[in-house]
Amino acid sequence: MTDTRTAVLAAADALVAAFGRHDTKAYFDAFSPEATFIFYNLDRTLASRAEYEAEWALWETRDGFAVRACRSTGRNVQIVGDVAIFTHAVETDLSIGGEAMTNRERETIVFARQADDRWLAVHEHLSAAA
């Protein structure tokens, strides 16, 4: 179980690090193509990685969206067979339209072990911090 937990945390760390440096290729590569996304600031569920990538590109072009840094705290991993549920508090420095801001949120990312033993994210749920 410890090796599995370590592998899931490494996958989560890579995902968060890519997000924090606005490395869209590495960030989206951390997700399965079939991954789904629920964000509190969207009125709909994004039903695939491709839908999220299109939304992200819209944020960049329409809103001037850019991630500057990201910090993950209060991390927990729950292993259920070949599925892992990663929860954490996330603080993100970003800019929108040239204006700097910091978001404080809670996030659940569900990872699934792949046939090659990699852990890919298959679902992300983001909520505003209380």
Rank of each mutant, 00 (worst) to 15 (best):
Y52D: 01
G98I: 12
V77H: 05
V8Y: 00
D63P: 01
E60G: 07
F31L: 12
A66Q: 06
A47W: 07
Y52M: 00
V110I: 15
V8W: 00
K25H: 11
T4H: 09
K25M: 06
I79H: 08
T24A: 15
N76H: 14
R5D: 14
R49I: 01
A18R: 02
I38W: 08
A26G: 02
G74N: 09
A11D: 12
G97A: 01
G97S: 00
G64Q: 04
F19Y: 08
L58G: 13
R106T: 15
A17D: 10
N41E: 09
L15A: 04
T87S: 12
M1Y: 02
A35L: 01
A18N: 00
A17R: 00
A47E: 14
D116H: 12
F28L: 14
R113M: 10
A129S: 09
D93A: 15
E99C: 11
T87W: 03
T6I: 08
D63A: 12
L15S: 04
A7I: 11
H88F: 15
P33R: 12
V67T: 15
R71K: 13
I79V: 15
D23R: 07
D29L: 13
R5H: 13
A12V: 10
D13E: 14
G74M: 04
A10G: 11
L15T: 15
L126I: 15
Q114P: 05
T87R: 13
A47Y: 07
P33W: 06
D63V: 11
T2A: 09
A69F: 11
R118W: 09
E107R: 06
S32V: 14
R71D: 10
A57H: 03
F19Q: 04
S127M: 10
V8G: 03
E53G: 14
A10K: 01
T73I: 08
I38C: 05
A129I: 07
W119G: 01
R68C: 01
A69T: 11
F111C: 11
A54V: 00
A84I: 05
T87A: 03
G81H: 07
R113E: 11
R104E: 03
V90P: 01
R21D: 03
F31C: 07
D29W: 08
A11I: 06
I96W: 04
R68L: 07
E107K: 09
Q78C: 13
F19R: 05
F86I: 05
E105F: 02
V122Y: 02
D29I: 15
D82G: 10
G64I: 00
V83D: 01
A54I: 00
E55M: 07
A57I: 03
L58A: 14
T36D: 04
V90D: 08
T102F: 04
N41W: 14
L9E: 05
N76C: 10
F28W: 05
D3S: 12
R5A: 14
L46W: 06
D82F: 10
E53N: 02
